[in-house]
């Protein structure tokens, strides 16, 4: 698998991030390839969430936060003044650490992203809801109870609902921030399978502190420490033959 033949979908160049005066990211260069899964690993507090949240500008709302460097989506800087952040977030979807469905019905959760864009047509809404639930491998489990509150689902189902909700607005990139840390192993396996399918259509970026998970689902891995990118490359190589001593220590479990 040669990286050169692949298309880069998102890319950061010398990305610095500050929470007020505290520097959380330091010259991070990571590329996310189309139809590939890129995993971000590293000890907790090293800036994984901070990094992934800069990709859809979710950090914009934090008071005192500041970004420097370049973040490219299809070669265009997403921080240019003429970039519409609402449009950006539609193209770059996100699934959070803790399942966070709205206190609404299953149907309304998924229709939300369409309705805020003014889609009213019931038939089309139904079609998209079904398509998204199928895409998230949840349709068969919930097709008879779409009117029930999303909180009636199990944690794993809720997380797949959140994935379906993200799929409904037809994103190009999907960001996962430790999507399995709050759910059980069986549900985790389902989501890992799902990520494998999703990469056929999307660019996937996943933060995980579970190294086995990174090894299982990802094609590329970035290892971060203390806000710096230590090593980035093909997952297989990172896990079998890392260049950096720190990477080797981390994946062999010597710290972290």
């Amino acid at each position: 698998m040669s990286a050169e033949a692949l298309k880069i979908r998102m890319e950061t160049r010398d990305l610095d991030f500050y929470y007020g005066s505290k520097k959380a990211l330091d010259k991070v260069n990571i590329a996310c390839y189309e139809n590939r899964v890129t995993a971000i690993i590293g000890p907790s507090g090293c800036g994984k969430s901070t990094f992934i949240r800069t990709l859809n500008r979710m950090n914009d709302v934090i008071a005192g936060a500041r970004v420097e460097g370049t973040i490219l989506l299809d070669g265009r800087d997403i921080r240019l003044p003429d970039v519409d952040v609402v449009d950006l977030r539609r193209r770059v979807g996100m699934v959070f650490q803790k399942p966070n469905p709205f206190p609404k019905s299953i149907f309304d959760n998924i229709a939300y992203g369409l309705r805020i864009n003014g889609m009213r047509d019931k038939k089309r809404l139904e079609a998209v809801v079904e398509g998204s639930l199928r895409g998230a491998a949840l349709w068969d489990e919930v097709k008879d109870r779409l009117d029930e509150n999303a909180f009636s689902l199990s944690g794993g189902q809720q997380q797949r609902l959140c994935i379906a909700r993200a799929l409904a607005v037809e994103p190009e990139v999907i960001l996962f921030d430790e999507p399995c840390s709050a759910i059980d192993p069986i549900a985790t396996a389902k989501i890992e399978d799902l990520i494998e399918t999703l990469k056929k259509r999307y660019t996937v970026v996943i933060v995980t502190h579970n190294m086995q998970q990174a090894a299982r689902v990802s094609d590329f891995t970035a290892f971060m420490m203390l806000g710096e990118l230590v090593e980035f490359g093909v997952t297989e190589k990172i896990f079998t033959n890392p260049v950096n001593k720190l990477t080797e220590d981390y994946i062999t479990g010597r710290f972290g």
Partner: peptide, 14 residues
């Protein structure tokens, strides 16, 4: 919960 607001913003809601 702030998570509701985040979910909404992440879907491209204003």
């Amino acid at each position: 919960p702030p998570a509701y607001g985040e979910a909404s913003l992440a879907l491209g809601a204003s």
